[in-house]
């Protein structure tokens, strides 16, 4: 599998604010690549540099062998972009929008997409009268009409209900099966975990982790212990070696630790010595959600 995107030490500032500090990544042909991070982390700036609509201040960037901001016209023939918060003309009918955007390209997969996205029943409806999920389908169709080699999706599932979100994932997977490479940003960790082949985590304009969702979960300590106890105290737990954070609600505790085994040993030893009962003790595997919070807290304490 070849690399379709290669970014080396990308830097971008707006005035005195450094939105992207130093990001290097590669995206392979045919994969779904997720860029995740909290709001304001630099996700959109990063994806917009890849799309060629923002010029990096520094670093090297190659997308499909082109330099995006310099060869934008060439690039625009080969990529599809779904921007955050865009619309089409309110009084434009779905069929009209598809025909219009199809006329921008020499060849399109118009009819196939109408089938794939189930747009038949909505062809005569004006854009403004569609629900959020259908609007998203229509704009997805517009971005993929010309069988783009790379499809960029900026926060594709924002504002969709859980059902519409799952349908969107299905559609994105179907596009991937056609051989399209997909780069998307999201702040839904579940989306990254279930949909993406590889994930880049961005915090304050810097790349913090990169790999398959599974690798991220394994290589970074985001695992925790949960148990119920009436007598253990927060102050004691947080003082134990390797403990990163402690959350408790009534008598249920969630202890995030860099070293589960050691932490567990200390808790059991203390409880044994002091005859404190502990119930329902479990080793839990963290989700990307936990990893996300883990990084945010490290960021805050740094």
């Amino acid at each position: 599998m070849g690399e379709v995107i290669k970014a080396d030490h990308l830097v971008k500032s707006y005035g005195s604010i450094q939105a992207v500090k130093d990001i290097s990544l590669t995206v392979n042909k045919g994969e779904i690549f997720g860029i995740i991070g909290p709001n304001g982390a630099g996700k959109t700036t990063t994806i917009e540099m890849l799309e060629g609509i923002r010029k990096p201040d520094g670093g090297e960037l190659s997308v499909l062998g082109l330099t995006p901001h310099k060869q934008l016209r060439e690039l625009n023939k080969k990529i599809g972009v779904q921007f955050q918060a865009t619309a089409i003309q309110k009084k434009m009918k779905v069929k009209e929008a598809i025909d219009l955007f199809a006329s921008f390209y020499p060849t399109t997969q118009k009819d196939h997409l109408i089938d794939l996205l189930g747009l038949h029943e909505k062809l005569g409806v004006m854009f403004d009268d569609l629900s959020g999920g259908w609007k998203q389908r229509v704009t997805l169709a517009l971005a993929t009409l010309h069988k783009p080699e790379i499809l960029f999706l900026d926060e594709p599932s924002m504002g969709l209900d859980p059902h519409a979100r799952r349908e969107l994932w299905g559609l994105i997977n179907a596009l991937k099966e056609q051989g399209c490479t997909i780069v998307l940003t999201t702040h839904y960790m579940e989306e990254a975990e279930k949909l993406c082949d590889r994930v880049a985590m961005i915090y304050s304009g810097q790349l913090r982790a990169l790999g398959t969702p599974q690798q991220l979960l394994n290589q970074i300590p985001a695992h925790y212990l949960t148990f119920d106890s009436e007598e253990l105290l927060y102050d004691f737990l947080i003082s134990l070696p390797s403990v990163v954070s402690v959350e408790n609600e009534n008598q249920s505790y969630k202890v995030l630790s860099d070293d589960q085994q050691t932490t567990a040993y200390y808790i059991f030893k203390y409880c044994y010595d002091n005859e404190i009962p502990v119930q329902d003790f479990r080793f839990e595997k963290g989700s990307l959600d936990d990893l996300f919070v883990h990084f945010l807290e490290k960021e805050a304490s740094a």
């Binding site: 060629g52 016209r73 972009v81 921007f83 918060a85 619309a87 003309q89 390209y105």
Partner: peptide
Amino acid sequence: NYRETGVLRRYQSTPIR
């Protein structure tokens, strides 16, 4: 209005100029 609501932005990454 098209600029404000993102209608123009949608054209930006297409071959239309």
